[in-house]
Computed example of a mutant assay.
Amino acid sequence: MMRLDKFLAEMGIGTRQEVKKYIRKGMVTVNGSPALRPEEKVSETSDQVCFEEKPVSYVKYEYYMLNKPAGVVSATEDRRDPVVVDLIREKKRKDLFPAGRLDKDTEGLLLITNDGALAHRLLSPSHHVDKTYFVRVEGKVTGAEKKILEAGVDIGENGTEERTRPAKMEILASGPVSQVLLTIREGKYHQIKRMFQAVGMQVLYLKRLSMGKLTLDPALAPGEYRPLTKEEIASVTDENAGKY
């Protein structure tokens, strides 16, 4: 059971103060009767709550797979640029956030949710969740670079050593512009760009394809999203999901 005003506010009907005004104006009903008080207790599962005669169903957690486009910031708000949560138009909850970050110019898989415990498991360094990226690089990537990057490189700055954990790489094409699949265990700032800089190469394009057991749906164009399936939710909420 929870307070009616909290129920409505969490479902994005308005702020707590706005919701209280709606209740006093008779715009909210519970099981067909006008709600009388904001503090009235309702069941999230069995009571029928309506706002302006439209049912409001309660959802504790939401999970969306987004194919993040370039130019959008992995944040809940930004003064200059559009943010990823604003791309989720059908969201019910107002407390969604990106579970992890992708650089502004990076595309690909981003999980949008309000499940803080899940986000902690996916992002915690102790869990070492796989993150696989498609990378287009200026320069010829050979077995020599593969060996170095897989072993871990120093991406520190100003004389400070900062070594990456061992990675996995598959070379898809090697030439003036090379293409690789790179799987890392962590998510340091600009990590993949800095890894290739450490071997004298520049990343031209970067797209995340998977995170743990969650793989980007190829049917999603950049900027498109969909709710996770029940099977996908089960895979990401598994505490051992994606571990090496």
Rank of each mutant, 00 (worst) to 15 (best):
N240W: 04
K131S: 06
E138M: 10
F51L: 10
P69L: 11
V137Q: 01
F97E: 05
S57I: 12
K146Y: 11
G212K: 00
V84R: 04
E138P: 03
H128W: 03
P98I: 12
A117S: 14
V85K: 08
H120L: 11
A198G: 09
T106W: 03
L4E: 04
K243M: 10
L4V: 04
A75P: 01
T160W: 00
K6V: 04
G108Y: 09
V203G: 00
R194Y: 01
G242F: 01
E62D: 09
G187K: 00
V72S: 06
E62S: 08
P34C: 15
E52A: 07
E145H: 03
E224Q: 15
P82L: 07
M169N: 06
Q191D: 02
D217I: 13
H120G: 13
P82M: 09
K146F: 10
T29G: 03
E138D: 07
K230E: 14
R208P: 13
R89F: 06
M27V: 08
L182C: 08
I192T: 03
L206R: 03
L123A: 04
Y189Q: 01
E18V: 12
G108L: 12
L102G: 02
G156P: 01
E170S: 15
K21E: 13
I155D: 00
S33M: 13
R3C: 01
V199D: 11
K168N: 12
Q197G: 07
L118K: 09
R89N: 08
K168Y: 13
L206W: 10
R194L: 01
E18Q: 15
L172I: 10
L209E: 15
L123S: 04
T215H: 15
Q191L: 00
E157S: 03
F7D: 05
Q202D: 12
R194N: 01
G116R: 09
A117K: 14
E40I: 03
A241G: 04
T160I: 02
K168L: 14
P218N: 14
P125L: 05
H120Q: 15
L122T: 05
K147R: 15
R208N: 11
K20V: 07
M169E: 06
S210V: 15
R163T: 00
T164F: 01
G14F: 07
A117D: 15
